[in-house]
Design a protein around this nucleic acid. Structure first.
Length: 283
DNA sequence: ATCCGATGTCAAT
DNA sequence: TTGACCTCGGATC
């Protein structure tokens, strides 16, 4: 589930449900029981996202820092039934439940991180994250030039750089594969060989794609003219719910040129690309 | 019933 | 480069 669009959507959901409301907090799973006790009954004062990090503000109590990692999930529920009817009890693996009578409840399971942190600790996290296509362009340091400064000096492949949260934050395995396909870029191209105008186009494309991801709650990257319907091919529903060009489509032909999609491990994840639409750079 | 992989990251080697 | 961690669901037996 979790790339940056998921986290930004969660921040917005938390604001809509709980902002300025006193929430009940609990941790049936236990690992965060002490932290939950410290925020229980307090008002949510802020909810923001940077890359794949979620920050829930509880005034003087500090911030709950959440990172979903690979397996973390959120479930959001509307208020149950009649007036004041309590929600169903959380499953034992729920690390953090927040609830409010009119906001419903949010259940967090399996996160890599769920911890109460201070404002300076939060700032330290921001400081080590690269610019985020989903943060406002006027947010401090949220400038694609910062990413370009690193990419343009690096011998590392662009596919690995896109996954490096210090370079650019919020992009994960789906967006990296899809955005490189959309721009016809060889994933193995060293950053320093990527044309500057291609980088700026990739950044601006990520901004649009990820905003759409926040809006829809899924990753759709296929242009209207390439949808299976438009191409006269059978429609395909991807495992993650969206329509994509290459991510986990190794059993299928490329939507544009019918070449079989390739896969190989890169930067600890499985990379997917079309060797025809993204031709390898010379040697 | 069991295995395996998954939209992630960090520390240890 | 590998192993550890967190949880769940789909494939396989």
């Amino acid at each position: 589930m979790p790339e940056g669009h998921t986290i930004h959507r969660l921040a917005a959901e938390h604001r809509a449900r709980f902002l300025d409301r006193p929430v009940r907090a609990s941790s049936p799973q236990g690992t965060f029981a002490a932290g939950a006790a410290l925020i229980d009954g307090r008002e949510l004062t802020a909810a923001e996202a940077h890359g794949k990090h979620l920050f829930l503000g509880f005034g003087p109590a500090g911030w709950v820092h959440v990172h979903l990692g690979l397996f973390g999930r959120y479930e959001l529920h509307e208020p149950s039934g009649g007036d004041g009817a309590p929600p169903p009890p959380p499953l034992p693996t729920v690390r953090l439940r927040l609830e409010h009578p009119r906001g419903g409840h949010a259940d967090l399971r399996g996160p890599t991180a769920c911890a109460l942190i201070t404002e300076p600790e939060k700032q330290a996290l921001h400081d080590r994250l690269g610019p985020d296509p989903l943060r406002p362009p006027d947010a401090p340091g949220n400038d694609p030039e910062r990413a370009w400064a690193r990419i343009s000096r690096s011998r590392t492949s662009i596919a690995a750089l896109l996954m490096d949260q210090k370079v650019i934050s919020g992009v994960g395995n789906v967006y990296r594969a899809e955005v490189l396909f959309r721009h016809g870029v060889d994933p193995y191209l060293p950053g320093k060989l990527l044309p500057r105008e291609t980088w700026l186009a990739i950044w601006s494309d990520l901004t649009a794609l990820m905003r759409e991801g926040v809006r829809l709650g899924r990753i759709d990257t296929v242009r209207p003219e390439h949808t299976p319907e438009a191409m006269g091919r059978p429609p395909r529903v991807d495992d993650h719910g969206g329509e994509v060009y290459v991510y986990r489509r190794t059993a299928h032909p490329c939507l544009i040129c019918t070449t079989p999609i390739r896969t190989a491990p890169l930067a600890t994840r499985n990379l997917f690309w079309c060797p025809t639409c993204q031709p390898p750079h010379p040697q």
